[in-house]
Design a protein around this nucleic acid. Structure first.
Lengths: 193, 193
DNA sequence: ACCTGAACACCGTTCAAGT
DNA sequence: ACCTGAACACCGTTCAAGT
């Protein structure tokens, strides 16, 4: 494993162990057995290191969603599988998932990070389009429905992570909420559409 | 204006001007014309000051949503009004809105902050329940639908703030996405429900 | 090419005083 | 009761060296 990879792995571990604030370059370096500023020989800044971790995770999510698309069942079941996969990743790696949704980071490091994010979303949109083509998901502009569902997933995960789900009575489980969403999206004949 | 209020106002201004990271106690104190640790006489910590700002904003959102409920139009229009109100607040005060969704803060200061968040959500849920009672919103467990819509709103705002909406082709506007959501929620006869 | 160690300008927070 | 100033233990980042 290269030093570069070891630094990323240490950052990822710290991220899940204690959240973004615990990922100091000094802690990352110490966990890797290096001096406190060795990371600068591999990454331009703390933000660049975090962006590298995030890009890797976006690629992981993209693979995971693409797998769900190739799995069995009808499109809605594959969509459910993709949502479940992302949800499971977020539960196993809360700190890393939160990093993916963190605004300033994504905005600042637009290179391969944005490409990786776009790739993950495209894999997700492909499943939604399958469902629309099969007539089991509502007709809507191409990526719009996929974006809406993806945003909902992120909103639910974020709400659960912050404890807001408890405050929002009746919405005490991400999976139950996703089930409700899929039920609302299930095909119902509508006049004039 | 009490010193307490001036500190909160300075923190809120910094929040919107440059995001959470720019809200240092030193900057807040300087903007208030005080020494760098005067804030400790009014708030237990930096987190407590931020929590006070967040609680105030949750109360503002709650009032704003309650106003939308009392406005004209059918329940779906009032729901749209509430969503628009929250969206407008998030556009005018991006830093403050992000703070409301920030996990660790809400989790750490459970007192009046959680009560304020719960109040805002209850006002929102009331509108959704009006719509369900009028038969213009889908039947679903009481708070679950409200929570789902609220999470979607937050997910969309968060996605736009991070620039992810641009990456997600077709979902380039929060308002268009909310319109799609409301359209999907519009009543369509369904067998067996 | 990669790493170390000292240094700088920041932080949040604490503490001993001042009025 | 409220505020100040010095101090402490952290940060990210830079720089001059070392191998």
């Amino acid at each position: 494993m290269t030093t570069d990879q070891r630094l990323r792995a240490a950052a990822a571990a710290l991220l899940d162990a204690g959240g973004e604030s615990t990922v100091t370059l000094r802690a990352v370096a110490a966990a890797t057995g290096l001096s406190h500023n060795a990371p600068y020989k591999h990454f331009a800044s703390r933000g660049a290191l975090l962006a590298a971790v995030a890009a890797e995770d976006f690629r992981t999510l993209g693979r995971l969603i693409a797998e769900a698309r190739r799995s069995g069942g009808d499109p809605v079941e594959r969509l459910r599988g993709a949502l479940e996969g992302v949800l499971r990743f977020s539960e196993r790696h809360p700190g890393r998932y939160q990093l993916l949704l963190r605004s300033p980071l994504v905005a600042a490091h637009e290179g391969s990070l944005e490409a990786a994010a776009r790739g993950a979303f495209r894999a997700f949109a492909a499943i939604v389009e399958d469902g629309q083509a099969a007539g089991v998901l509502p007709a809507a502009p191409s990526g719009a429905l996929a974006g809406l569902v993806f945003a909902t997933l992120n909103g639910l995960i974020d709400a659960e992570g912050s404890g807001r789900l408890e405050a929002e009575k009746g919405l005490d489980d991400v999976r139950a909420s996703l089930d409700l969403l899929l039920r609302l999206l299930s095909p119902r004949p509508q006049a004039g559409e």
